[in-house]
Design a protein around this nucleic acid. Structure first.
Lengths: 345, 345
DNA sequence: CTGTTAGCGCGTTCAT
DNA sequence: ATGAACGCGCTAACAG
């Protein structure tokens, strides 16, 4: 296994011409004899010639590759965002390198280093729930590699961002619970470190306030987004002297875990307790009862992120200021909040 | 934004030493004065120096990067395989580039070219359902870049492969249906082009045969794995003069679609018709009733694939022959086949 | 211990 | 229309 791949020099030698000519023929340069070009192209084909992207990147100082880093990609959300971004990026001739940090700050830092070392032209990222320090992302900025955050965004960095209106989504979710008659509405919130979980908490609070319902501190629990903890806290809420009559969960997996716990305890949904999630995970439409949730335009998040990145990539010189795009959400009503939902989606 | 990243030459100039010394200091070469090393390390830190992986790869003719290409990654399966592979690969110091071909042959070919151009050291791949021609993978082989197939494997290529025992899994699924009293067992099969769908079909057939149940051709339908078609064919089966009393679906999404159709028609599961899927998708445990299915060791598939690749990567010289690893499956009984499943997983 | 030189594969001047 | 020479950033071989 010699592992020597054909280079333009090999082709040049065999054809007894210079490598410059081969290079020109291959890249479609106008100044090259049509017959020579044919011979080069033929031999290249015959020899399985593949241009070495490494050499070109080294030469041009751009890889036409962008990195996408996500905290996980088991749930449907991040893969779908990635696909959305990839559509736009591929269209523009960019390759994509996908990394996942596994919700680990350390892995995130390492991935960032690897991405920088491999000289990506740009970075699209949603950080881990552990991330407090963003220096590993600031390096990109400092080196002129544009960064776009989505979903989980660093508020302190002056870069483009894509989010959904988490505040509004949460508000709509809680408003829906209130309008269907609930008064003791619990909220399983995410870690305080994530801006979107703070926004959702604010939406929850403001909805209660607007409808004149006092907030009960014992009904609001922040947790680390693991299902084990979700299980514990749902049980805790149900064991309260005055248990809640509704639960607004930070995301669908949490809501589904809650639903399982509640069903296992023999309570009826939505009669005894109603549940709303966030994100419209595909599972939500399939469970019994269906989960009322807040839908987000997932692919669009990816597309927008890619667009914002392209904006920075193309206007290298003009120094376009970063932009933030906030996308809308949608209340999707299913059986976990009303008996006969009409718009079962 | 100058986009000039610090190089060892910059450091060398500022310290008035040669770039070789800088290189040595940075890579931990023993032959370098400890004081010089300190000065270099300090300045490098201060200047945000990041080694240019491109240059090193060009030089060493290896990128320490492996490509993983999958047909899709919305379902849980492929992401989980990727994570499994990544664990092993990261441990061995390899980076991973993830591509998805979106079940499109054309995209697959393009991805393969890009991966080759960016000089990955190896490739782990599961091909699209459209793929009939494997020349774009053979190029890797020819160039000495090891390839490992998993899940959907090319039978004609002499490379390492990881699969599960699809035949045995299907056999167990159908046997379970027979043992719980079903006789008219339909099978929604995958496209004939996929070896694993052929194996599952064979398992189905042999189970029937072994239990003396004649195969009814009208009960076996091959289709393209899209949910639209699944919907159509399930309805078709139910409209048969003698509808089936059980359905073995090629995978869980298909089974879940069938389950929805069957419930919508007011039939009782498992009394009127039983359903078994394949792959143990997380959704399966959450739907009503739970879906009986065949579990596969998903992360292990990824880990094994990575191991087989490493084997080829390390023994470049010795020319180790490719190996095929076949992993076992597990019948997981839930409510879609028996009223009170005891081992609800 | 350190500096010099060569070369990885390619595109791009600048000549011819 | 073609060739020679240079350089992208780095490591390694060879001299000191």
């Amino acid at each position: 296994m010699s592992r020597h791949l054909t280079t333009i020099i090999d082709i040049a030698k065999q054809l007894d011409i210079s490598k410059s000519t081969v290079s020109r023929a291959l890249t479609g340069h106008p100044n090259v004899n049509e017959k020579t070009r044919q011979r080069v192209l033929e031999l290249a084909e015959q020899l399985d010639y593949q241009r070495n992207q490494l050499a070109i990147s080294l030469l041009t100082n751009q890889t036409r590759t962008v990195g996408i880093m996500v905290p996980e990609f088991i749930s449907f959300f991040f893969p779908k965002v990635i696909i959305g971004a990839q559509e736009v990026l591929a269209e523009a001739g960019y390759n994509v390198v996908i990394c996942h940090s596994n919700e680990s700050y350390e892995t995130e830092v390492n991935n960032a280093k690897a991405l920088l070392a491999s000289r990506v032209d740009g970075l699209i990222v949603s950080h881990t729930k552990e991330t407090r320090n963003f220096d590993h992302f600031r390096v990109f900025q400092r080196k002129g590699v544009p960064v776009v955050f989505f979903n989980r965004v660093c508020e302190d960095m002056n870069v483009s961002k894509v989010t959904v209106d988490d505040y509004d989504g949460a508000f709509k979710a809680v408003e829906h619970l209130i309008q269907t008659g609930r008064r003791r509405i619990a909220h399983l919130a995410g870690p305080d470190s994530l801006p979107n979980s703070r926004s959702r908490l604010n939406g929850y609070r403001d909805a209660l306030r607007q409808y004149g319902i006092p907030e009960e501190p014992e009904l609001v629990i922040s947790y680390d987004l693991t299902l084990e903890k979700a299980n514990i806290y749902v049980n805790h809420l149900l064991n309260l002297p005055q248990p809640p009559d509704a639960l607004f969960a930070i995301n669908d997996p949490t809501a589904i875990e809650a639903l399982d716990v509640i069903k296992a305890r023999g309570l009826r949904i939505p009669d005894d307790i109603a549940i709303v999630g966030f994100s419209n995970d595909p599972i939500s439409a399939h469970i019994e009862p269906g989960l009322t949730t807040i839908g987000q335009p997932v692919s669009e998040i990816g597309q927008e992120a890619a667009n914002l990145l392209m904006e920075q990539l193309l206007d290298k010189e003009e120094n376009k200021p970063p932009r933030t795009v906030v996308l809308g959400t949608q209340l999707i009503v299913r059986g976990s909040t009303v008996r006969n939902p009409d718009n079962r989606v």
